[in-house]
């Protein structure tokens, strides 16, 4: 296997509303940031891959206008997944493994502020049986949270602890949307939103973009003092029909973590794509993480959730901490679909 590292990561601030900025303007900020951090230009990139969702913008081909941010003249080798950009990174990583290319730029973007974010993921559901019932994304997550409480494994207090931890960690993250000092008691005193979830159990609506650069050993070492090497990467999917799954566990996250080799060494940090507090508990268990691992040092998804680049953000947040020497080995997780249906796990090492 060829050695590949994340050598650079840039993100736009995780704001509730990016105002007048359009997709192209957000992508330019992230892409220029990632290239700039590495001291390279788009001419140094062999392959570009992105992740985005047409339904956020209410028109087909959101990713097409984003190409205007790349300087793709003359033409570039490029591809796009209608998935979180973490999967775009997987496609690029695969392409590097083929041996044809040495570097890749990956970006994701989403402007959720100007659409009905709570209803967009409803369109992911089985179009014949579930979608016509319009179950919104929070309600679907609440079903899972309820199942988890009923299983007796966790309590609402455990959910609140996840939020306390996220808000506390986010205080050190200048890009976070939500941060601060809270107590479990304070949070539990809040009313429920979609029972048993409270508003703080749900990730915020966020606008933004993120980009990373991948490189093979020779270039990674030339462009980065301490590259974050990808030593394992895998993704798996569970059944879509919620009725056939045990919602209190994540089989696909467990399998992806095993295949990616999460347990092959000590995990200093983990960034988990858990849009709802209870999902962090499910993921932690599935991936075999214990209290020796700092979970979501950036504040994670509850501190800012750019739909379509949140998974790439997790990879970037882990990579940044390895590049800076803050951590030696970390795990980044990305998810897609209702109740964590699909999961991608990346292991990064210094």
């Amino acid at each position: 296997m060829r050695e590949v590292a994340v050598i650079s990561y840039a993100q736009t601030p995780k704001v509730r509303d990016a105002g007048a900025k359009n997709d192209v303007e957000l992508v330019m900020e992230a892409v220029h940031g990632a290239l700039g951090n590495a001291g390279i230009t788009n001419k140094d990139i062999d392959f570009t891959c992105s992740g985005s969702c047409d339904y956020l913008g209410g028109a087909a081909f959101a990713f097409v206008s984003a190409v205007d941010a790349l300087g793709a003249v003359p033409s570039i080798a490029e591809s796009h997944v209608e998935m979180d950009a973490a999967w775009a990174m997987y496609e690029a990583w695969m392409k590097i493994q083929m041996g044809h290319i040495d570097t890749a730029l990956i970006y994701g973007f989403g402007k959720s502020s100007h659409c009905e974010m709570r209803n967009i993921p409803t369109l992911q559901m089985d179009p014949y049986y579930y979608q016509p019932l319009w179950p919104d994304t929070v309600s679907i997550a609440a079903l899972q949270a309820r199942a988890l409480l009923e299983s007796g494994k966790y309590t609402e207090e455990d959910f609140a602890k996840v939020v306390v931890n996220s808000r506390k960690n986010a205080k050190n993250n200048p890009n976070a949307q939500l941060s601060g000092d809270y107590t479990v008691e304070q949070l539990l005193a809040e009313p429920t939103f979609v029972s048993p979830l409270r508003k703080h159990d749900c990730c915020p609506v966020t606008d933004g973009a993120a980009a990373i650069v991948l490189a093979t050993r020779e270039k990674a070492e030339a462009w980065c003092k301490r590259p974050a090497w990808i030593t394992g990467i895998d993704h798996r999917i569970d059944a879509h029909n919620l009725g056939t799954r045990d919602l209190t566990v994540s089989e696909s996250a467990k399998l992806a973590a095993e295949k990616a080799g999460v347990k092959k060494g000590k995990v200093d940090i983990a960034e988990l794509y858990a849009p709802f507090s209870h999902q962090e508990l499910i993921l932690k268990e599935a991936m075999g993480l214990d209290d020796s691992t700092v979970i979501n040092p950036s504040g994670g998804t509850l501190a800012g959730h750019v739909f379509m680049s949140c998974g790439l953000d997790r990879i970037g947040e882990v990579a940044d901490r390895i590049i800076s020497g803050e951590a030696d080995r970390g795990v980044a997780h990305a998810s897609s679909g209702p109740c964590l249906q699909q999961n991608l796990v990346t292991v990064l090492e210094g």
Partner: peptide, 13 residues
């Protein structure tokens, strides 16, 4: 199975 979603567009700077 009609889909009705509302959008508020931002033109860009």
């Amino acid at each position: 199975s009609p889909v009705n979603l509302k959008y508020s567009f931002a033109a860009g700077r």
